[in-house]
Design a protein around this nucleic acid. Structure first.
Length: 307
DNA sequence: TTCCAGGAAATGC
DNA sequence: GCATTTCATGGA
């Protein structure tokens, strides 16, 4: 299989990039090796020292898809210099999380992923997203759809058969299909999800978030993807924290500073804020980190989680 | 059992 | 306006 290798990478560590909570569809399959699904493609990335090998991948695919996805054209060394000068805590966090890069992910996938992330833990978020993709996601380009047909017997006897436009697209993996990571369906589109009802997503076990995902899918199917912060906040199941994640990870708004339980913890324990003083933390981040707030947040998040 | 997880929406005051 | 409660799910 064709691979592409890029050498002499600086400020690049796959382990930190895929373990700082920004993405959920990459899985570690060996030392420095990750297999996953992004940009509609299933690939494996392997880092050895300052070299990165992507498989399958051509030079053209690397330059047009993975170079921007991995944000390789941004000078993270300079960003760390600027942030490290701010305060000793930030300096340590930059050093600890060196090699972190903010991926340029698909906006729709980011929206759904972070709606699912609310009041949830990272391993279970990954499980929810994987089950959602296996349930209603499209087969990736160039691969045949090996999913089992939808089980018709789910319908209770005597219960009216509900017809929805998306019914024919609904699939479910049978219990005999191994969950061995060998299947990587693409992320379901807004149109696909908009045509479903919350009970259709029950096998994905999103909990009460299924309603938010479908309602947001309908908003996006009708009005298109959000383009402003206000439009992001108007989505169902999107509050201040999730909105900031969407702006940062899906819309390149690098001044966003998502404040979750971990950031609250680090701001409380290492910066001396009261834990409930989210307004104070927000104001501090805006004044202190400014246009680099998103990068600062990622370093702090990773630092606090690994303490 | 109870608590908690990258919170948001509904409800109460 | 602000504080409290509720919302599924599953692991610790």
């Amino acid at each position: 299989m064709n691979s592409y290798t890029i050498r002499n990478l600086k400020d690049f560590q796959l382990d930190h990039i895929f373990d700082c909570g920004q993405c959920f569809r990459w899985n570690k399959t060996g030392p420095g090796v990750y297999s996953g699904m992004a940009m509609g493609r299933r690939v494996t990335m392997e880092q050895r020292g300052d070299s990165l090998t992507v498989t399958p991948c051509t030079k053209e695919e690397f330059d047009t898809i993975w170079r921007p996805y991995l944000d390789l054209d941004r000078d993270y060394g300079r960003i760390k210099e600027i942030l490290a000068e701010k305060d000793p805590v930030m300096a340590r966090a930059c050093e600890w999380g060196t090699g972190i890069r903010i991926l340029q992910q698909d906006l729709w996938e980011v929206i759904v992923s972070f709606i699912i992330s609310q009041n949830n833990n990272i391993p279970r978020i990954k499980g929810c997203i994987e089950r959602l993709c296996r349930l209603v996601g499209a087969a990736p380009e160039g691969e045949e759809d090996r999913r089992a047909p939808v089980q018709e017997s789910r319908q209770e006897p005597g219960q009216a058969v509900r017809q929805t436009p998306g019914q024919e697209g609904l699939r479910a993996f049978g219990a005999n299909v191994g969950l061995d990571g060998d299947q990587y369906p693409d992320f379901p589109s807004a149109q696909t999800l908009a045509a479903l009802e919350p009970e259709d997503l029950a096998p994905a076990r999103l909990g009460y978030r299924a309603r938010y995902v479908i309602e947001t899918a309908r908003q996006v199917a009708e009005h298109g993807l959000p383009q402003t912060a206000d439009q992001v906040l108007s989505l169902s199941g999107v509050g201040p924290k999730v909105a900031n994640c969407i702006l940062l990870f899906g819309m390149k708004k690098y001044d966003s500073f998502p404040i979750d339980v971990w950031v609250r913890r680090v701001m409380h324990e290492l910066y001396g804020f009261r834990e409930e003083d989210v307004k104070g933390m927000k104001a501090f981040a805006a004044a202190e980190f400014g246009e680099f707030g998103g990068f600062a947040q990622q370093y702090l998040f990773y630092y606090m989680r690994s303490l």
